[in-house]
């Protein structure tokens, strides 16, 4: 059973990065529906960088750069040029998916060099990995997974314990008030949209570098949309986002597990569960009365000082 849960962590890690990325973006008041495209861009650029250089660090850097550049396009259009956030995000997905498939033509079916794969082999953390069950599940993973834990912790501390994090929440909650109190609204939006995009790129790269280190066209396969939904599921909290990412990651491999145990369930029906769960969460969240579970007040609303 421990083996299954260890696999759940691996299935949930790409979701975790993308969800935290989208969470930071939304905290700045921008809903970026381009996550799917950003993950694809990260996946392909990370893979090509790793494939050409054989260096895992450069592979990760390639993924970060792809996510950052992709989200910079989105940021420029929605923040500076005040374009509609939903349509711009969808366009980014269309662009990103097309770009990734196009850019990946020449490496289709190629396998990553051993030097990159070696970097992502399992590392048992001393002491922690010896804890029964928990050690096997959480602390016998690759560095990428550990980096994911750190990102969650950093996001939590940043949003709740730092002045910048508080300013960020003010920007997303009420942009005019934040502006009036001297916070540079556009700067905060740019920085967090770009960091968010870089994290989405890393999420995509996990799929092409670690999960299956061979380039295939449909590597992200809708996970970006699940990440957008997970942000709502997590009511904009990093801790809950981590739980959600692993739960949804688990659902994505549950069918095959059940089949191997002799229980006949169609994986295609189980594949529907994350989406059905998200719909239910979206419905429930509209009925939620608890103030701390609500979306940022200024989400998707553009803010222009000149228009006041």
């Amino acid at each position: 059973m421990g083996g299954f849960f260890a696999a759940v962590i691996i299935a949930g890690t790409p979701l975790l990065f993308a969800t935290i990325g989208e969470l930071l973006t939304q905290k700045a008041g921008n809903m970026n529906l381009g996550v799917e495209g950003l993950m694809m861009m990260g996946a392909v650029c990370g893979f090509i960088a790793g494939f050409k250089t054989g260096n895992a660090g450069l592979a990760l850097l390639g993924a970060i750069a792809a996510g950052a550049v992709g989200s910079l396009i989105y940021a420029f259009l929605t923040i500076t040029l005040r374009a509609n956030q939903q349509v711009t995000g969808l366009t980014l997905t269309m662009f990103g998916v097309g770009f990734a498939k196009f850019a990946g033509t020449n490496v289709m079916g190629s396998v990553l060099p051993a030097s990159v794969k070696a970097f992502f082999t399992k590392i048992e953390i001393p002491l922690l990995s010896k804890i029964p069950y928990i050690g096997e599940i959480f602390f016998s993973q690759d560095v990428f997974v550990y980096f994911g834990y750190i990102i969650v912790l950093l996001a939590y501390l940043y949003l709740n314990k730092t002045k910048n994090g508080l300013n960020l929440r003010a920007v997303g909650e009420n942009a005019p008030a934040a502006d009036a109190s001297g916070i540079s609204v556009n700067l905060y939006k740019y920085i967090h949209v770009i960091i968010g995009g870089a994290l989405c790129g890393l999420g995509g790269a996990y799929l092409s570098l670690v999960t299956i280190p061979v380039w295939q066209e449909n590597v992200v396969a809708g996970r970006g949309w699940i990440a957008v939904a997970l942000v709502i599921f997590a009511s904009w909290k990093p801790g809950k986002a981590m739980v959600g990412a692993f739960v949804f990651g688990g659902l994505s491999i549950l069918g095959f597990r059940l089949q191997s145990m002799g229980i006949q369930v169609s994986q295609y029906l189980i594949d529907m569960l994350p989406y059905v769960a998200t719909v239910i969460i979206v419905i429930i969240s509209t009925r939620k009365n608890r103030k701390e579970d609500m979306p940022p007040g200024w989400l998707t609303l553009p803010y222009f000082r000149e228009d006041r």
């Binding site: 259009l77 349509v87 366009t91 662009f95 990103g96 498939k101 196009f102 033509t105």
Partner: peptide
């Protein structure tokens, strides 16, 4: 040319990026 049809998606995306951006110059 053995180029994936997805190139059309990418071009669609680019066209829409520019058109979305151009709206700004119509309004401001």
């Amino acid at each position: 040319m053995n180029i994936p049809a997805a190139v059309a998606d990418m071009i669609q995306g680019i066209i829409l990026f520019f058109v979305l951006g151009s709206e700004f110059f119509l309004q401001y």
